[in-house]
Design a protein around this nucleic acid. Sequence first.
RNA 1: GGGCACUUAGCUCAGUUGGUUAGAGCGUCUGGUUUACAUCCAGAAGGUCAUAGGUUCGAAUCCUAUAGUGCCCACCA
Length: 710
Amino acid sequence: MDASFDKKYQPKETEEKIYHDWEISGFFSPENTRKDNNGKAFTAVMAPPNITGNLHMGHALENALVDVIVRKKRMEGFRVLWVPGTDHAGIATQNVVEKKLAKENIKRKDLGRSLFVNKVWEWKEQYGNIILGQFKKLGISVDWTRSRFTLDENYKEAVKTAFDHYQKLGWIYQGQRLVNWCPRCSTALSDLEVEYSEEEGNLWYIKYSLKDSDNYVVVATTRPETMLGDTAVAVNPSDKRYKKLIGKTLVLPIIGREIPLIADKIIDKDFGTGAVKVTPAHSLIDFEIAERHSLSSVKIINEFGRMTEEVGKDFKDLKTIEAREKVLEQLKKENLLEKIEKHTHSVSHCYRCNAYIEPLTSSQWFLKMNKLAPLAIKAVRDGKIRFYPKRWEKPYFNWLENIRDWCISRQIWWGHELPIKNSEDVLDTWFSSALWPFAILGWPQKCKSIANDKKCLTPQDDLGEFYPTDLVTSAPEILYLWITRMIFSGIEFMGKEPFKNVYIHPVVLTKDGRRMSKSLGTGIDPLDLIEKYGADATRFGLLWLTGTNQSIRFNEDSVVMGQKFCNKIWNATRFILLNNPPQIDADFEKKLVQTDLDEDDKAIIDQLKNTIKSVSLYVEKFRFNKATETLYNFFWHDFCDTYIEKSKDKVFNPPSEEIKIKTQSILLYVLFDSIKLLHPFIPFITEQIYQALPIKNKEKFIMIEKWPTV
RNA sequence: GGGCACUUAGCUCAGUUGGUUAGAGCGUCUGGUUUACAUCCAGAAGGUCAUAGGUUCGAAUCCUAUAGUGCCCACCA
């Protein structure tokens, strides 16, 4: 027995070394693993973490469970490929570096574009790979030799090729459109990058007088300052109160502009007064109304969140909030403010910096969705791509069926430059992430033949071998941002869906059901758990909680349970090895047929076979809680509490030497199969035990052992 | 406004297609253990399965409604 077999299992002493041994062994790469499953490939797509990030609970859960699948597949003889990498995360990274520079009193604009981008690269070199090192602590079996970054040189070519392709098809256009604008980041954002929060504000009722009349119409608004940009007032065509007035002219207060009273059925009769001011340059609904009625548009707020010269010198350059005060003051003076009501409404924020979004018209680049969205819809409808759990299909379809064109330009400096001339803009980060499943495999370089429109006709090497991939796993929050876009991109450029299965894993919440967030102080750092309990216990704890619900409340008890379970496995191994069992063959089970088995032996072998069947099935169905529970009950109760206890007499006071040897052999054999089954879940301890077992013809590592079958 | 999920023991949760006394871990209580493990073993207490109806021989499980919790999408002029 190995002297290192202490009474207590000490994960800290060994995990790092084991991981290092795996990594240098080359077995994380598909070309080095066993090839006894007809050389079939199995590919998993990692969601590349942001280079600004730190490992959080969501990463830990997601990668732990993909690792379970991937390790099992590898043991089953698939050529497994799981490519790691990082995402340049345009806005997020730019903000982080800006903040860092601010501490040194350096402003981005003072540096200028190229110096700033250099600073970001420096930052990336220094901190950008920290998160991947944290991923290693979890024990995930990814192929580091193929690691990618969404802004590396080959990736730039992929992005350029994709953009050119879309442009050639006429699917990319530049347009003066209403976009979500973040004044703090000074960039446009896509609809998905806007978050909403309920806030209490006011509803101001303002009188707009009819031209050449003492009569007036009252409109209600939450943003009185935008009235300076009104070009119409709209009512519902069926609204009796206003029917006679439709088509008449109103005079915009303060400005004096003559604007029409129009009818549009989008207007809700029951809100406010039923009459709505129309500000096409600063509201999406108004923008659409203006398009339908050919209204003019007056841009009164600029990209810095200040009033433009369109509003006259009294208001020019004021911040919107200052303009609001001044507008209200003047309206009061002219007795045009009818009343003020308290009003709760949802306000849009930038998802990166939380600043208020200022909707405004701006010249941006868009990718048409009318051809691409249907591709993604069809792939799932036809069953080419399956969602687990299936309920995610509904929101997926719903989103794609109501999609707007994708605003792909961003007015920041860190990102893929727009491959066209005369633009300072960069592309939305997600434009590059959308290409991830095939870009990481070598597209477009590894297309031997490629059609004029840049479709890959004959993929070579990795692209030929590992595309389409088998599995992508993600949090629900990036279903639209990432999953949908990978699907239509993959079909468009490769002619095939990028993956067969999409597993949407639950969101990890705190024990009392709150969001885990660093800023709220509710986050639990998985690295602390790994430090305290070991990576195996942490993985076990998370997997134990991963059922079919859309969220899980994280409870440290389950990690403690994992820790105890590891200790139990450790000590069962100690017991078995302590009594110097005879060496057995790796395929010992074949001999069992000829062996004289007693009731206890038959029972444990039966239970083992059931466990093999169940665990295999549960992993295939993403039922990680059931898989871990099955293993836990089998090993702890069936094996330890029952079989091992009963074996003691047969080993210590054997009726015959034969029975002693048989019992010891079965103990060793069941342990051997158990740690193989447990390995995908708790890879470190099982590897360590494997190395100590007296088994003939072992592999070099348990990670390339054969997965038990019945 | 639309969609999804959840409500089971003090706490965190399991309960495949409806079928014997509803399970686990933690916590509590009782007892045990001279060599695998006190991070252990044996056992106990503790649940009107959110509420109200319905379907059924039979419902935690299926249906309807109600209440509460959480998430997502749309949007609030």
